[in-house]
Simulated assay, not measured.
Amino acid sequence: MTKELELSIERLYSTFSRYPFRSEIDGCPCCVSESDKEKLHTKKLRSLEEEDLSRYAFKAITTWGDVEDFKHFLPRILELLSTTNFIVNTFVVLGKVNYGNWTSWPGDEQTAIKEFLISWWTDSVKHKTYFDKEAFVEIYKLLGDIELLINKWVLSFEDNSFITYIDLVINYYKDLLYGKKSFKEIDKETIDKVLAWINDRKGMIEKGFFYFEKVDPEFAEEVSRALYIVEHIK
């Protein structure tokens, strides 16, 4: 985890600490069982695990509790989402943030969420071994600033940022180019900016091939595939 992400998570806890835990949180009896409710009582907020919060994360606001209840649990949910293989999909969690009309929340809460999303995205491209398409789409939908996301993606051979870039090219370049459903929620102007960003870094792919040819020949073949895609698929 980057220091930036760590600090942004701490800011979430600090900012949303104004929302206390309510011992009685109303939930639809058809959707929320007593055992589901009990899980929220078993531990302190920072100690709640995936199995404690997953059901709540699915049902929050719509059929279990209100926005203020959601804000209480939000720091831990976002921490689990960004640092573990959280069972609840990214589009569900960030969809709840959007459903809760987060752009109308107090300014410091909006800032804390924005800083978290940017830090999480930066951490993702630096440390994951694959391009997290779902996180990319959902974070963009909340922030609405594609330049911010791609400018935060600084390619380097010293971390995984180049590896995630190559994965993007191999697995999603055609989808971006031909308007496939993987990116159906992103408008064409934004897609064109992503494609331009990819193509502007073609020289980095060439350098990456020669770099990894020496240290990881198998990955160098993937780099070669990516270069072919960028140069020949139009």
Rank of each mutant, 00 (worst) to 15 (best):
T122Q: 14
V223Y: 02
G107T: 15
E185D: 13
Y178I: 10
W105E: 00
K181L: 13
I87R: 14
L168S: 06
S119I: 07
I205E: 12
L155M: 06
S124E: 10
D187L: 12
A226K: 06
D175S: 15
L168Y: 05
F210G: 11
K184W: 11
Y173R: 08
V97C: 06
S124N: 10
D132W: 02
K193T: 07
L142M: 02
G100D: 01
G100E: 05
D187S: 14
D200C: 10
D108G: 07
V137G: 02
L117P: 01
S156D: 10
I146K: 00
N151E: 14
F86K: 01
F212Q: 05
P217G: 01
S156I: 02
K193P: 03
F157N: 12
F91R: 14
E115V: 05
V194P: 01
I186P: 05
S224D: 14
F212L: 07
I191R: 00
E222T: 12
L149I: 05
G95D: 05
I191S: 04
P106N: 04
Y172C: 00
E109C: 09
L143R: 05
T190C: 02
E138G: 03
K180W: 13
F219D: 00
F131H: 05
V93L: 06
E158Q: 12
L227D: 11
N160P: 08
L195N: 10
A112P: 02
L155W: 07
L117G: 04
K174E: 15
F131S: 02
K184R: 12
W105I: 06
P106F: 00
S104Q: 11
T111M: 09
K133S: 08
T164H: 04
K184V: 12
W153G: 09
S124A: 09
D187E: 15
V169W: 08
W121G: 06
N101Q: 13
E189N: 07
I198L: 01
Y173W: 04
D187Q: 15
L176K: 04
T103A: 05
G144Y: 10
F209L: 12
I150S: 08
I170P: 01
K202T: 14
I146N: 05
F157Y: 12
L117I: 03
L94W: 01
W121Y: 10
N199I: 04
E109V: 03
K184T: 05
K141Q: 14
I146G: 03
V154H: 12
D192F: 11
K188R: 13
W120Y: 10
W153D: 03
Y165C: 02
I191H: 04
K96E: 01
G208D: 09
W105H: 01
L142P: 06
R225C: 11
W153E: 02
E134Q: 12
E213T: 11
N101E: 13
V137E: 07
W121T: 02
F219Q: 04
Y173N: 02
G203Q: 00
K207C: 11
I205A: 10
S161G: 09
P106Q: 02
F116A: 04
K180H: 13
I163D: 06
V223P: 08
I191E: 00
E189S: 08
F157R: 09
G107F: 14
S119H: 07
D192G: 11
K207F: 08
W197Q: 01
